[in-house]
Design a protein around this nucleic acid. Structure first.
Lengths: 351, 351
DNA sequence: TAAAAAAATGTGTGCGCACACAATTAATTT
DNA sequence: AAATTAATTGTGTGCGCACACATTTTTTTA
């Protein structure tokens, strides 16, 4: 290690022939500065390409950063359990800094519960919030509140563009549908029917499922395949409803647009010994992994809720603590998971 | 923001009834401490779960961290150009800290040039080094030197386990071969011959190519496929040598174990209008992307040299600047890239 | 022109830690 | 028991910055 010789505010001040206070003022635009001084300092600033020492800056402004993450109850759905895992990882990661990260959960099946959390969120007066706005309408209300209180927010999983968040973190759903189509189309053979299946417990995010299906259809547009789709909101009776469709001998494969739906369909396929039917679904839920390993599920598209959540928190901290500029959008790669590369994903720490 | 109330060394000292100096001594094991004081301090330390403020720690020990990255000349091979891009990204990322990151390149085709760099590397007296040890023998020599000088190093891309680096960053090559097999096997049809192709300019890392092939063969072990392999070290005459093999009507697909080789083979397939032959290769080189988009290449396995290099530097900095503990190995996921998910990888910032 | 107000600039302190050094106490030696 | 030496403990300074406050200069008002 050598002694540092980076340019400090002090140096800037000296070069510009003013005091550090004045430099501080032009840097942060606080207080009055004569245009003469302003100019001199700016000149030196530009000339030297001054970069503040973020370490010192953070230490100097002695604050505890408070971040709140608002997402569905992880016990209700494994997908959100993964998201929570990402938050927990973030907490660990920032444990050496003055950052306090809290989670607030709402009921995935009850939009009303989302509204209830609003008070809780605002009450804790966080410096920034990470939100999974699964309930469109209710979210907009909350976001308006946040705007009023000038609390910055990052959205993940579901976008609400008109809310102009600090950053949106998610995946291109249409494109992921196309990837699903590509994977289903890979299989040779003469079968030409593709089924797109929406299994949901709540229809609030049906828009997103439709986006995925749209991608799928777009992929097959110019090809001699027939895409049929089925919407089922009562998972208990799924079997009865799709029995006819899956017994269609022309059926090549099924695309399930929800993570939970994926293993439900796998169960059924297994029951009827229809493992030859291609199955493409979403996310690395424990149950899905089981069927992927057995070969009932052929491909999983990883939306990576864990990393989404983690990066969401990290972005907030980087922005609020280190005033780093964030990208408007952080669109995740569409990861294709197979039997053979699954473990490499599971064991990878960076993931 | 609220006032912080994290436990500081000062607090520990007070609680243990000693001075901060003593606490500092037990924390860093420097200087003598009476067993009495030692015990008291340790008790408080454990009880409170003290975590040092890394920000303050870094600022307090006023040093400039010097990191050197040693890798092949990026102008010689696009693969290494990607690695360099990762380093550059790291430089940008740490530009606000007292970290100085330098790159030293060696000739990819000349082991001797690697040795020459040794002086340069040691001469700059870095605090840590990131190395791509493509030349096994020469690398071991350098690593021994580093050990003598007590300079910690992180290896990436190629492992040398007996050198026990701070951390190794890479991919499971055998497993990536299996993934290749899986992808080749996906195609239906009656063709049953798979070709494994090694195209290299230098045979120093042939071990790694063999590992990939090993994975491929392992995948097809119990299946009615025939795997033939071809080693070619003279890329200029590749075409002549593989012409016979690719014209084999039973040929289902080709697995190319090198990134550069991938597009070379694609060129040939295109020339003979053999696009129906499956082609699986490595890495997102510009040329490979072209053929992937056209469909000549069906799958690319992304070794992600860019992120490997970047994470290598980041790990070094985190360890040396923030004394974070590193994992022994950072094994990257085996990413499957297709025409449809390619753009999602290219545009993703986090990648 | 003096006094008051406003504008501009400068100074000082603390953040939590590392590290050098000073001060104190205990153990040996003479 | 005084003088040395060793062992232990305490204190002070600086890292680069933010931010509060003090000081100086200029402008306005009386």
């Amino acid at each position: 290690m050598i002694e540092k010789k980076n340019i400090r505010i002090k140096d800037i001040a000296q070069m510009a022939g003013v005091s550090v206070g004045t430099v501080d003022r032009v840097l942060h635009g606080r207080g009055k500065v004569s245009s003469d001084a302003q100019q001199k300092v700016e000149e030196v600033l530009n000339r030297t390409g001054y970069k503040p020492n973020l370490i010192a800056r953070t230490l100097g402004s002695n604050k505890t950063l408070k971040i709140t993450a608002l997402l569905p109850d992880p016990t209700q759905d494994d997908y959100w359990a993964l998201a929570e895992a990402g938050i927990l990882q973030s907490i660990e990661e920032w444990s050496y800094y003055d950052v306090e990260i809290n989670c607030i959960f709402f009921d995935l099946y009850n939009p009303g519960s989302f509204k209830t959390t609003t008070e809780g969120v605002l009450g804790s007066k966080p410096d920034g919030i990470l939100i999974a706005p699964v309930f469109h309408h209710e979210s907009i209300e909350l976001l308006n509140q946040l705007k009023v209180h000038a609390i910055p927010y990052v959205l993940f999983n579901t976008n609400i563009p008109e809310a102009d968040p600090l950053c949106f973190i998610g995946q291109n759903l249409v494109q992921s549908g196309k990837v699903a189509g590509e994977l289903l189309g890979l299989a040779g053979g003469s079968r030409r029917t593709i089924m797109s299946l929406h299994l949901y417990e709540n229809r609030d995010n049906s828009v997103h499922l439709m986006a995925k299906e749209h991608g799928l259809r777009q992929y097959f547009q110019e090809q001699p395949y027939q895409v049929i789709s089925l919407d089922l909101s009562t998972p208990n009776e799924v079997e009865d409803h799709i029995k006819e469709a899956i017994l269609n001998p022309d059926l090549l494969g099924i695309f399930v647009t929800t993570s939970k739906g994926t293993y439900i369909v796998a169960q059924i396929l297994e029951k009827y010994s229809l493992e030859h039917i291609r199955l493409v679904g979403y996310d690395l839920l424990e149950e899905n992994l089981r069927y992927l390993r057995k070969g009932t599920i052929d491909f999983l598209i990883n939306q990576n809720p864990k990393r989404m959540a983690k990066i969401g928190v990290n972005h907030l901290v980087n922005h609020l603590l280190f005033q780093k500029t964030l990208p408007e959008k952080e669109i995740f790669p569409i990861e294709i998971i197979t039997r053979q590369n699954l473990d490499s994903y599971l064991t990878s720490r960076i993931h």
